[in-house]
């Protein structure tokens, strides 16, 4: 053994400190993303609002969750690797996907934003699916309903237009920041 043997209490304190640092980094990384990320509002694909906030967590679907495969530019993403979807803001609000690339595009238009995405399973190969669409996830699809907020959000969401406020950083990572109902921010994520 090349490493001089540490005293047990020092070694174990280093282990605990390193593991704590990893956990703290997870939280800090997320906090920075939510605090400093560029904000976009994504409409939630209409679902039955009665059950939406009833469970412990809901799965949110978006119009931009299905991306037509003809938008793939350059090499096709393979397997489980992350890829990038460029979204473009629409006149009446909301976004549409305009490009899907295996690597992060260098240049984007003024109304465009790039999100890092993955498929639910693996990316369809050219033979499997030459037309059609691919279902993608941006990491903003599950939402754990905060205790006590379910009934209120459900009441608010009834027959209303539901959207989420999303923070996106320069690398394309996205995080849910809040729930928007009829254009008004009704719930925002607590950081600590």
């Amino acid at each position: 053994m090349t490493l001089p043997r540490l005293k047990p209490w020092i070694a174990l304190a280093v282990v605990a400190a390193l593991q704590t640092a990893v956990l703290a980094w997870m939280i800090i990384d997320r906090t920075i993303l939510i605090k400093t990320g560029k904000e976009i509002v994504l409409p939630v694909r209409p679902v039955d609002p009665r059950d939406l906030f009833r469970g412990q967590y809901v799965r949110l679907g978006y119009d931009v969750s299905s991306v037509p495969l003809r938008l793939v530019e350059g090499p096709r993403p393979v397997g489980n690797a992350a890829f990038y979807v460029t979204l473009e803001a629409q006149e009446g609000g909301g976004y549409v996907p305009v490009r899907l690339t295996a690597s992060r595009p260098r240049e984007t238009g003024p109304k465009q934003i790039v999100l890092k995405a993955r498929t639910f399973f693996r990316f369809p190969t050219a033979e499997q699916n030459s037309s059609g669409t691919v279902q993608v996830r941006y990491g903003i699809e599950s939402y754990f309903v905060p205790e006590g907020e379910g009934p209120r959000l459900e009441e608010l969401a009834r027959d209303k237009k539901l959207a989420v406020l999303v923070a996106v950083d320069a690398k394309g990572n996205a995080a849910l920041k809040g729930i928007v109902i009829d254009g008004k921010l009704q719930y925002s994520e607590q950081l600590l």
């Binding site: 990893v22 956990l23 997870m26 939280i27 996830r137 903003i140 994520e189």
Partner: peptide, 16 residues
């Protein structure tokens, strides 16, 4: 440590 990773990921809606 493992449990904490999972629980923090859940708390902050991390998917990745």
């Amino acid at each position: 440590f493992g449990g904490s990773i999972m629980l923090i990921a859940q708390m902050y809606h991390m998917e990745g």
